[in-house]
């Protein structure tokens, strides 16, 4: 392995930039968990839907120059899909008939994952596609970044910041945070918690859809392009802490750094292993994650 300080700086920047993209992938998972208290194993498939929608809108309607017009439309469509799916598949989880809610959520979302993935393969074929990008290459310090990747980096940071503000500064965000703390409590305050679940699920999958749309020209579009989202997303929420937005950002950046530096200066084939080692380390020293709340024991 070659080491120079410039190479080190470039690798650090590469790690941070991919880390922000990872954080964007994890945001939806952590958000849905914090409100609905379920793990959505099909999150990667909503990322995939977002990437395909972006591809279709850019290639057949707007062209690469108007990718930013296609982006909110893709996210909106994924939001709507999420709000349609939630009452059918997720809402029954809160009925009295379902005793083991976690098991129910796992089975239902894994079934959804398989359905959506196979549907995409059937409809779009297994081939890789790209919406393309006209954005010029940009220097991020000493590291050249493709315009599409830089746009994803900036939009990712903006999406995380906006989402954070939505949660902290709005009435709706307050209701969501209240539901995250106590579903029963928020119900007694007159909030329709099941409607809140529907909105939270829609927002959560829309975040994955935004990630898919932003990264479509960077990592290509194909039926299983969301696998990375799911794997990295779960690594990040273990590192950063379930339900924490700053945790998702810090966890994503840490994961990106560890993978990039490890691949560049230790051994390249183990790039994905370094992330899992970090996960194990966090589990040993702080099982609730860096920003996660420790469970209160009675």
């Amino acid at each position: 392995m070659i080491f120079t300080w410039q190479l080190f700086a470039q690798t650090v920047i590469a790690g941070v930039s991919i880390g922000v993209l990872y954080a964007l992938m994890a945001l939806g998972i952590t958000f849905i968990y914090s409100i609905v208290r379920m793990i959505n194993w099909a999150m990667g498939e909503f990322y995939m839907i977002g990437s395909y929608l972006q591809y279709l809108l850019v290639v057949y309607l707007f062209g690469p120059g108007l990718w930013y017009v296609a982006l909110p439309l893709s996210a909106l469509a994924v939001f709507l899909i999420g709000t349609v799916i939630e009452p059918i598949l997720i809402k029954p989880m809160f009925g009295a008939a379902i005793e083991r809610k976690d098991d129910y959520a796992t089975v239902v979302t894994i079934a959804l994952l398989l359905l959506l993935r196979n549907l995409a393969t059937g409809l779009a074929g297994p081939y890789q596609r790209t919406p393309g990008s006209n954005l010029p290459t940009i220097m991020l310090g000493p590291l050249p970044q493709s315009g599409a990747r830089f746009a994803a980096f900036v939009c990712g940071l903006a999406a995380i910041a906006l989402f954070y503000l939505l949660l902290k500064k709005t009435w709706f965000g307050m209701a969501l945070r209240a539901a995250a703390q106590s579903r029963l409590g928020v119900q007694t305050a007159g909030v329709d918690v099941l409607r809140l679940d529907q909105a939270a699920f829609g927002i959560g999958v829309a975040l994955a859809g935004i990630a898919g749309a932003l990264l479509a020209p960077v990592f290509f579009v194909f039926p299983t392009d969301g696998i990375v989202t799911t794997v990295k997303g779960f690594e990040i929420i273990v590192i950063g802490g379930l339900g924490s937005i700053p945790g998702a950002l810090v966890g994503g950046i840490l994961l990106g750094l560890v993978e990039s530096l490890g691949a560049a200066f230790i051994s390249s084939p183990y790039q994905n292993v370094y992330g899992f080692l970090l996960v194990l380390l966090i589990l040993v020293i702080r099982p609730s994650g860096l920003f996660g709340e420790r469970a209160r024991l009675a």
Binding site: V228, S260, L261, S268, P269, N272
Partner: peptide
Amino acid sequence: TFDHATTDLTPQLLQVQA
């Protein structure tokens, strides 16, 4: 060498460039 599942090859390609 790199894992087939890797999506970001920037660290490897920076080594190549160097």
